[in-house]
């Protein structure tokens, strides 16, 4: 009897494994396209979220991505030394030719983030899917990460914050930066800046999975020359630039 049970179990085991193997590939694609991962599943390193910014498409006068970011995350929109800026628009001028290009700069979501290396508390961390975040429950506001970041991507909240947007916590004494709109990404949406840029008709920011060779972003990176800002640092940034 026990022998029968054993083999039956084994058979069932193989069956399940085979089924899982079949189901995973199409299932994952479907989920990714429709509504992100299931709520009760942890993020996985099978995915690496990234963005490609095409400086040729980005318009010098436009700052819709910045506005969208501020609105999405409840930032004041101020640009003073005490104001949080998660994304900045920059115009770069070639002094020889006079050519001006425009591009947004934000947290580059490094594969080897220096901010997490220096953080003494473990508050700076990289999620399995490549999004670099600050756990503001743990952050002590020492600002080492701000020193370590080569992109000046992080801001310190120096004053009490009131009237935060529900679901977008921000508070005094902690460091914050672009979260790649992690709440939206987990819900299967794109970051607010990406949608805003597309709505403005520029489509200068492409968001997607760098690990998936069939994603728009991977195809573009395979086809065109793209750059990582300060590639010499070997940080393996998740945000890439084209046309710079």
């Amino acid at each position: 009897m026990s022998e029968v049970n054993t083999s039956r179990r084994q058979f069932l085991g193989w069956g399940t494994a085979a089924m899982a193997g079949l189901a995973i590939a199409p299932g994952v694609t479907l989920i990714d396209l429709a509504h992100g991962k299931p709520d009760d599943q942890p993020v996985s390193s099978k995915v690496r979220w990234g963005m490609l910014i095409d400086a040729n498409q980005c318009h010098s006068g436009c700052s819709d991505c910045v506005t969208a970011c501020n609105k999405e995350n409840g930032l004041s929109g101020g640009t003073g030394p005490d104001d949080s800026q998660w994304i900045r628009k920059m115009d770069l001028k070639d002094t020889h030719s006079g050519r001006v290009m425009s591009l947004p700069m934000m947290c580059q979501h490094c594969g080897n983030p220096p901010c997490t290396d220096v953080c003494p508390t473990g508050a700076s961390f990289k999620r399995a899917d490549g999004i670099v975040l600050v756990d503001r429950h743990i952050c002590i506001g020492c600002r080492y990460c701000m020193m370590a970041c080569p992109y000046k991507a992080r801001s310190f909240v120096a004053h009490p914050v009131t009237d935060q947007k529900p679901g977008r916590p921000r508070g005094i004494g902690t460091v914050e930066a672009c979260t790649m709109c992690v709440e939206r990404v987990d819900a299967g949406l794109k970051p607010a800046c990406v949608d805003a840029c597309a709505a403005a008709g520029h489509e200068a920011i492409i968001f997607g999975d760098l690990n998936d060779p069939n994603s728009d972003i991977s195809k573009r990176i395979a086809e065109y020359t793209t750059k990582q800002v300060r590639a010499d640092l070997g940080l393996d940034t998740g945000v890439r630039y084209q046309g710079v």
Binding site: K37, F125, D135, V182
Partner: peptide, 21 residues
């Protein structure tokens, strides 16, 4: 739930502060 959400991206509604509020 806070640790699971922030670090692992688990966003179940039960026990989420947003949901309580």
């Amino acid at each position: 739930h806070r640790d699971e959400t922030v670090h692992e991206g688990i966003r179940t509604k039960r026990y989420s502060l947003t949901n309580c509020i």
